[in-house]
């Protein structure tokens, strides 16, 4: 069930576009903001709300890589794996994260704290390597900094 607040926010997005379904990505974002991901039930709720079928909405949802259709941890680590970070050695960071968190790409730590995902260029190539945790960007990374960074997130 969509909450009143979610509906309110979605209504606002709908007011900006010609047809409710045009606001479907915004609506998915709103739901994901609250739940961390978009479950099948949420997807159906959103679909009903904006007048789409589940299939039609899922078609949109699954196209984009930042709409999560599977549960994620409390914090999502997006590690930039694009070219500048490659040149600057993001692979070392990746190995370190695998080791520290004991998860591979696409996995969530056993305690549900982190999900690790690769991500394309974060647009901060002059400060490579970089990663993002939730809304926070970390640049000029070294393996040594990782513990301190990770410790900020519970």
């Amino acid at each position: 069930m969509l909450t009143a607040e979610e509906k309110h926010q979605i209504d606002h997005e709908i007011s900006l576009v010609p047809a409710p379904k045009n606001a479907c990505i915004e609506a998915l974002k709103i739901v994901q903001q609250n739940h961390g991901w978009v479950s099948d039930e949420s997807l159906k709720d959103v679909a009903d709300y904006v007048g789409m079928s589940s299939a039609e909405l899922d078609s949109v949802a699954t196209f984009y890589n930042l709409i999560f259709r599977r549960p994620v941890g409390r914090h999502v680590i997006l590690l930039c794996d694009s070219i500048s970070c490659y040149v600057m050695g993001y692979e070392g960071i990746k190995e370190a994260l695998h080791e520290k968190l004991n998860i591979q790409y696409g996995q969530t730590t056993a305690d549900g704290r982190f999900t690790l995902l690769p991500n394309c260029c974060l647009g901060t190539c002059d400060c490579a390597p970089a990663l993002m945790i939730d809304n926070d960007l970390y640049r000029n990374l070294t393996v040594e900094q990782l513990d301190e960074i990770l410790n900020k997130y519970t």
Binding site: S54, A55, D58, S59, F63
Partner: peptide, 9 residues
């Protein structure tokens, strides 16, 4: 139809 679509990328 409403229940057939293309998914992912």
């Amino acid at each position: 139809g409403k229940d057939l679509d293309v998914f992912a990328a």
